[in-house]
């Protein structure tokens, strides 16, 4: 009995220690990315009130492309550029791999648009608009918008402001992906109202129980994307 008590006590102590360390102490990357946690949250799960996107569990190839993009100026953000300016490709790849293997957590995001707007958003996300050569978001980002390995990001669990800002940045040319920049093409075909509707609807979707990005697929994408190998 006493032994069992001791074991339980030790386990509790160990768990407590692991808790205070914030992350798996055996993984040296956990401490190296503490600088990221200030905005992106512990293990990349950003807080509900944070604008910075949750990055836990996104495809590592996608994250790596974004880190390169910030470092090399294809994406603009003063803090991200300053953070990554002098880091090697190898280090960025390891950081991406670390966050790609973290577990995301759903942040509640109550709908902030009218039913009509949400319906319009849903239609564009699920069906696109063939007449305007607008593929459905789901055609590339996966039926459930969970992303596809290795380089297409999931779109769930992100604030609508963040999603809007990204589409806006693509539309006005301040965010770039490797050419052909498919998202820039798509964003330029969307109106401001459509962007608002799409992002409002996506932001209301909850992470399902099984939320890993879909495995790599063989059929070609409906549109050419330089960032997707």
């Amino acid at each position: 009995m006493k032994k069992r008590f001791q074991a339980a006590w030790l386990t509790a102590l160990l768990l407590a220690c692991a808790g205070t360390a914030g992350a798996n102490p055996a993984d040296p990357m956990a401490e190296r990315v503490q600088a990221c946690a200030g905005c992106h949250g512990e293990e990349g799960r950003s807080a509900a009130e944070s604008y910075a996107p949750s990055i836990a569990g996104k495809p590592a190839g996608y994250l790596y492309q974004q880190l390169l993009g910030f470092r090399d100026g294809r994406r603009k953000h003063a803090v991200m550029q300053q953070m990554l300016a002098w880091l090697s490709d190898d280090y960025l790849r390891d950081m991406a791999a670390y966050y790609g293997t973290r577990e995301p957590a759903q942040v509640p995001r109550p709908p902030r648009a009218t039913a009509a707007v949400l319906a319009r958003g849903r239609q564009l996300v699920e069906q696109g608009d063939a007449a305007r050569r607008l593929p459905a978001c789901a055609a590339c980002h996966g039926d459930q918008l969970l992303g596809v390995q290795p380089a297409i990001p999931g779109l769930l669990n992100l604030r609508d402001e963040y999603l809007q800002a990204q589409l806006g940045a693509w539309r006005n040319g301040s965010r770039h992906a490797p050419a052909p920049d498919c998202m820039a093409d798509i964003a330029r075909r969307l109106s401001g109202e459509e962007i608002a509707a799409i992002t409002a609807w996506i932001a209301t979707r909850e992470l399902p129980q099984e939320h890993r990005p879909a495995p790599r697929r063989d059929q070609p994408l409906p549109i050419d994307c330089g960032g997707v190998p």
Binding site: P28, E31, R32, V33, Q34, A35, C36, A37, G38, C39, A78, V79, Q82, M83, L84, A85, W86, L87, S88, D90, Y91, D94
Partner: peptide, 21 residues
């Protein structure tokens, strides 16, 4: 702004400082 030291052969994976802006 926060920031990381540079990746070098001697310190390929330096630790970083968060941004407090």
């Amino acid at each position: 702004l926060g920031g990381y030291g540079p990746s070098t052969a001697r310190h390929p994976q330096p630790h970083g400082m968060p941004s407090f802006a």
